[in-house]
Computed example of a mutant assay.
Amino acid sequence: MNRAIIAKSIITSLGCLALFAPNPAAAQIIPQPWVSVGGKDGDTTYAVGARALNLGVELGVGPDGATGVDVLRFLRLPVVSPYVGVGYYSEDKGVALSGGVQMGAGDRFFVGAGYNSVRGVNGQLGIRF
């Protein structure tokens, strides 16, 4: 075989391996819980959430006693983990859209900031097990 063909095959194989290589599963299976406090229109809002396998769920309480759940999708990057989500809230609040970012604050803790269309701007504090 030609050396150029062998080199191209090796480079392509390594590229595919890097692209499709699985992330360490043990670290992703253990849920990472967090609490969130924020505000919208002068009301304080609260939420609790958990993340595993780059998916998350957040149960929140918004203004006027609206309660709901958001499903989140995380993008795992080296330093930060941005996320987007969609949820549904009671008290005629309807569908909520959310987005934000979480990042490590040491070996066992992480912090985050986000926005939810029902609950407003919020800060997050979580723990890794």
Rank of each mutant, 00 (worst) to 15 (best):
Q124P: 00
A4Y: 04
I127P: 07
G65V: 10
G62S: 10
F110V: 12
G126Q: 04
V57R: 04
G38C: 09
P33C: 11
G49S: 11
S9M: 06
T67G: 15
V69Q: 02
V101M: 08
S36N: 05
L97R: 13
P24T: 13
S36A: 13
A96Y: 06
P24K: 08
D41W: 03
G94A: 09
N54E: 09
L17S: 07
Q28W: 00
Q28C: 05
T44D: 03
R108Y: 14
F74I: 03
F110L: 13
L125A: 12
G87R: 09
S90R: 05
G123F: 05
V101L: 10
G49M: 13
P33M: 11
A25I: 06
L72W: 00
A7M: 05
N116Q: 09
F74D: 04
N23A: 14
A26V: 07
G123S: 07
M1C: 11
L19A: 14
T12D: 00
G62H: 04
A47S: 14
R76V: 02
G60T: 15
P63E: 11
T44R: 08
S98V: 12
V101G: 04
S81Q: 07
A4W: 06
G65H: 03
G126I: 10
L53K: 09
G15S: 04
R76S: 04
L72S: 05
I10D: 02
A27E: 09
P63R: 11
V35L: 08
P63M: 13
F110I: 11
L75H: 00
G104C: 05
V35Y: 02
V95L: 11
Q28L: 10
Q124F: 01
G120Q: 04
L14Q: 06
K93D: 12
S98F: 08
F110T: 09
E58N: 12
P24L: 15
R108H: 12
S117A: 09
T12K: 00
V80R: 02
A21H: 01
L17G: 13
L14N: 07
G38S: 10
F109A: 15
G42E: 08
A50Q: 13
V37H: 01
P82Y: 12
G15Q: 05
G56E: 12
V61E: 11
P63N: 10
A18Y: 01
Y83P: 03
I11C: 06
Y88V: 12
L59S: 14
F109Q: 06
V71Y: 00
L53Y: 10
V101F: 04
I5A: 15
G94Q: 08
N2V: 11
N122P: 00
S9Q: 04
G39Q: 08
G112R: 03
G39C: 08
G60N: 14
A113R: 00
T67D: 11
A18P: 00
G100E: 05
S13M: 02
K40F: 06
N2Y: 02
Y46E: 09
G100K: 10
